[in-house]
Amino acid sequence: MPVTIVFLLAMVVLAVASIQVRKAEIAVIYLGIFSLFNAIFYLFYSAPDLSLAEAVIGSALATALFLVAIKGYTLRRTQIKSEYRSPKMRLALFGELFWGVVFLTIGFIVISFYFGTVQDVGKPAWYHYVRSFISDTGARNAVTAIYLNYRVFDTLFEALLLLVGILATAYFLEWPEGKEPEEEIATKPDSEIVARISGLLYPFILLYGFYIIVNGHLTPGGGFQGGAILASVFIIRYFAQRRLGINIFILQRLEKSFFLGIIALSMLLLLPEFMNSDFKVFHLVLMNILIGFKVCCGLAILFFCFIFQQTKVEDTKGRSERG
């Protein structure tokens, strides 16, 4: 599709803008638009699974995390102004120009070298995957077949990565001392309309998220994207009702037990007589469901830690310390 050139140019412009703009808040919004264009670009490069993951995780969740992290600190505009008027400013500008020239020359050499010497020696993995993924794994979506059956060893570490990343975030954000930033997020009452209508949408989004998880092996989707959709229900729910509703302590335990389930299930993959029976397809669905719920719990914890890092909401105050 020649229209992708338009998106590529827009991406480059947005990347430059998000680096050069002075205020971090604006840079983050540019980053969100950049990853939105990135997601649509993947769709035109016929990678629907990837564009889903990038749109869901890259543009919506990443932007939200950035904004929450820099929330308390961009308010002091006066401080930013004073920094950039000092005489050191000219020195910094000169440094940026110098490095710009160095990067342009080296980048040009590398890129021209790359396009001069790139060659393709054939793709045996591609040849084999495309021809035999239906018979081997019983999945209709080759991408799910790969990351749930051929290369399931990687997916185990990916689930572990999400578990550890969320453990780290919860661990760092519970740091007791240090000056508390102003808590203005939790106390703000939200508009009534958003609360009412988003209340209407929950069952629909939950059903849709579960649909994406369950037939991840047929149409694009699967554990990670479906889990993120379910987690978005928690996020909208926070905007509707001020309360947390879900206890982080239980969520952390749930996430770890789902992870153990994933490891146990992938161990079943090793028994050869298990695999050529028709259990293969059921194995895919079960793995997708487990990954989906694990990602949902994980992202929900991630969001609650970030949004509630200052305010321990009253109904979970007692138990929200680390389990």
Partner: peptide, 8 residues
């Protein structure tokens, strides 16, 4: 359903 909400 959702677009007016977002703009609002």
């Amino acid at each position: 359903l959702t677009n007016p909400l977002a703009t609002h």
